[in-house]
Design a protein around this nucleic acid. Structure first.
Lengths: 339, 339
DNA sequence: ACGGCATTTCAAAGCGCTTTGGATGGCCGC
DNA sequence: GCGGCCATCCAAAGCGCTTTGAAATGCCGT
């Protein structure tokens, strides 16, 4: 059943039927009712390909997914997808994932914009002065950044969590407990979130006249193994830190293993605070020593990103508003006063 | 630059240009060269929306993503996506994720098929007599199942790993080491993969005249917490098992924690074998006691699914061939002879 | 020289929608 | 009674491609 058939059935023109269905004012209420009734009765659904060709709108949102033989997609991504689904599910909003060579995402960005494959896109895990953000801005496609990018000469819409505040507060708490040697095991420090976190730690230490020594800061991709390695290196040296702040539960897993290998008991010999993105499959309260965390649900952020993207597509939102979400500090058994 | 402009520029008809570009035989080689040259020079790229309307082919593959407030997407999914990207990256093949209410995926399946939004789709984590498989089959859209579904009255194309064989071999090894009380901590046993795994364990035990007692089998969603709970229950009872086989590294994490809480040392008091889907962020060799595993990369499967889907779209593959991949058994320190 | 047959090219008709630029008719005031 | 103005509705022209059916061209044998 297509528009032509439906309009013939109703003895109306395609124009009128189209307008009635799309809520244009120049059609009488009675006609509109007749049309919508008939459409529903016959299960008419406009063909998206045709609509798309006519309007140039795709009705989908896009994500350029960096891939490569040595590129692993971060497990945080599924949390984001869950959140995106939370919103999109009820709105017939689909997401198109365009895999791109991580070395050259630009080509893919240009392709999907030129092809009008999506109406808006979201950009995740931004770097400072992120090229993708600059590109999306320049290409004029609606987008939202999940995270932030510093050093761009224009404003852009984003949602981010208060990484600096979270790590500041976590560190301050440790300092208040008497820790003087605090280390940071961070994620990839070319990404903005990691830069903010480091900043938060430094600031909290500085407030008490302490510094984050270069040897006490590690930056790696967030895996169990990297957490373990970093922790070993930190804890085996002289003047080992008495407290560690880390960027991911996955790393925390490795840190706990390292502490155990070194016969350090937590929290007696080592205090640990981790950031928690809220996974359903690994929870900080279920570590052998329940973990103190800074917590913020990526899933919730995903839902919000989808919502704002939808709003931008339909013209309900514009401008470059940035949202910064506060982060919970959840205290559990993994920290204590320094011996 | 569209087809019309290009054809005018070349003083050819749109027909000829279109055919030249799409490799039809009824155009002379010289003309074809002229056309492809000009197309490249002017950066002509056919408008996918128009092509789609004309041909009905979308050039994308689809996945209906079950979501819901209480539905969490499995972290295994990112591994699959990485693999899919491995193939799709070089082929300009995009994936559209259509979030659906987990209670009612059918509506979404029907929508994307009716709308011709995708040319083919893949179905993951199938149940027995899976409705989605039946539906896709009935709707006549090309698809591939990642995993298997039993009890369907037709054949369908799939790729799966030899879950039964893997768990059989793992269990047989434990039995050979003298274990008589072997337990299984499985994933959701309404899913086919879990049924096969249980079957494998039972068969191996039966071969030595042993049985898998009902109290020694647990089936839960694969999280650390569920692994812990299941292990506690198993290990605290009378006649506790001396060996456990489990379906996921995430559960293994919980099992190890439970053993530690109960002061059971591994492998002395407890042997453990886990299935490993190959995550980059959590590796069995980096458990405090390196884990013996049955290993099969989901990522590799993802790439293969994408490849076969592409082949089906372009007509290079048809029929209902099922691929069953063998699984590696990797022996590490977490198993030993029974005391 | 001419019909027959490939080979190569083309004009035009879709695909199913949106949107422009009128038409039509009823109702108003004068 | 008539011009003007809404309120409705419509025919037709896109959107940019593919594909059908036919025309033009060149070459063959006879």
């Amino acid at each position: 059943m297509n528009l032509k058939q439906l309009s013939q059935m109703l003895e109306l023109s395609q124009t009128t039927v189209s307008r009635a269905l799309n809520g244009y004012p120049e059609v009488s209420e009675e006609t509109r009712r007749r049309v919508t009734d008939a459409a529903k009765r016959h299960g008419y659904r406009p063909n998206p390909s045709a609509r798309r060709l006519a309007t140039g709108k795709a009705g989908m949102i896009g994500y350029v997914m960096p891939t490569g033989a040595s590129v692993d997609i971060d497990p945080h991504f599924v949390e984001f997808l869950s959140g995106l689904g939370d919103y999109a599910r009820g709105h017939e909003l689909d997401l198109v994932l365009s895999p791109a060579d991580a070395q050259d995402e630009e080509t893919t960005y240009r392709r999907i914009v030129a092809n009008k494959q999506v109406d808006a896109l979201y950009i995740s895990a931004p770097y400072n002065a992120d090229k993708r953000v600059a590109l999306a801005h320049q290409l004029g496609i609606p987008f939202i950044v999940h995270g932030r990018s510093e050093g761009l000469d224009f404003d852009y819409p984003f949602i981010d969590i208060d990484n600096e505040g979270a790590f500041h507060d976590a560190t301050r708490l440790l300092v208040q407990l008497g820790h003087k040697r605090v280390a940071l095991i961070n994620g990839d420090d070319t990404q903005t979130f990691a830069i903010f976190r480091e900043r938060g730690v430094r600031r909290a230490l500085a407030e008490s006249g302490l510094v984050l020594e270069p040897k006490n800061i590690r930056s790696e991709i967030m895996t169990e193994e990297n957490g373990y390695r970093a922790a070993r290196r930190l804890l085996e040296g002289p003047d080992a830190p008495t407290a560690i702040v880390c960027s991911s539960l996955l790393m925390a897993l490795g840190i706990v293993r390292a502490a155990r290998d070194l016969n350090l008991s937590m929290p007696r010999d080592l205090s640990l605070v981790s950031h928690d993105d809220v996974f359903h499959w690994l929870k900080p309260e279920h570590f052998s020593v329940p973990l103190t965390t800074t917590r913020s649900s990526i899933r919730a952020a995903g839902a919000r990103v989808a919502e704002r993207l939808a709003a931008r597509i339909s013209g309900l939102e514009d401008g470059a508003r940035g949202e910064i979400w506060p982060v919970d500090l959840v205290v559990r058994g993994s920290i204590s006063g320094v011996r």
